[in-house]
Design a protein around this nucleic acid. Structure first.
Lengths: 90, 90
DNA sequence: TTATTATTTAGATATATATCTAAATATCTA
DNA sequence: TAGATATTTAGATATATATCTAAATAATAA
């Protein structure tokens, strides 16, 4: 369950994409200009982030604009914190 | 940096290992009895978790006892929270 | 409608990873 | 020291993944 999330986040380029989208939503070509990969590779990474429900894309004319799924990310954050919280010895 | 952590956590069996060790420290044979993998495979997973600094093992006679690295996990948690925190539009 | 721009899909490749069996190593006990 | 128990290492295999180039699809502009 957290699995898909951790896998999605376990890649440098995908972490960078998240970081970029924290600042503002961006088109695919915007994003690719900040990374050292081809469009095709970026498309693949966006797909993984979409499947993990961390980002969404909407079409705006010729472009597709990606943005973070804020509420999902917040839930994910809570789940991770819960997962990593060490209970006091019971 | 968070990369190694996310990769280490991006596997079901390793998540289970973390969950087991949250309750108490355990020997390798203890752990393997809770999972559906061979000793060799477990050894591999323990290695990955050790390299990510999430767990440590100490020898106790014939056995090696693994436990969580509490302080590291807490730091990791903080880093992840920071990473996933969405800044207010600046 | 044709050309241009933006993105995705298909297909290939190389590397990483999860798993296994078998062998090696380490500690303890008789 | 020999045998038993616990863990790791070596080597093999199958699957997943990150990447690329080239082709396909979608929207806009001329």
């Amino acid at each position: 369950m957290l699995n898909k999330t951790f896998s999605a986040l376990a890649d440098n380029n995908r972490q960078k994409i998240i970081d970029l989208l924290k600042k503002r939503e961006m088109s695919v070509s915007d994003i690719v200009s900040h990374l050292n990969i081809t469009m095709a590779t970026l498309s693949h990474h966006l797909d993984i982030l979409k499947r993990a429900d961390l980002i969404s894309g909407r079409r705006d004319g010729q472009k597709i604009i990606y943005s973070l799924n804020f509420s999902v990310i917040q839930e994910v954050e809570e789940k991770i914190v819960k997962f990593l919280k060490i209970k006091n010895k019971k």
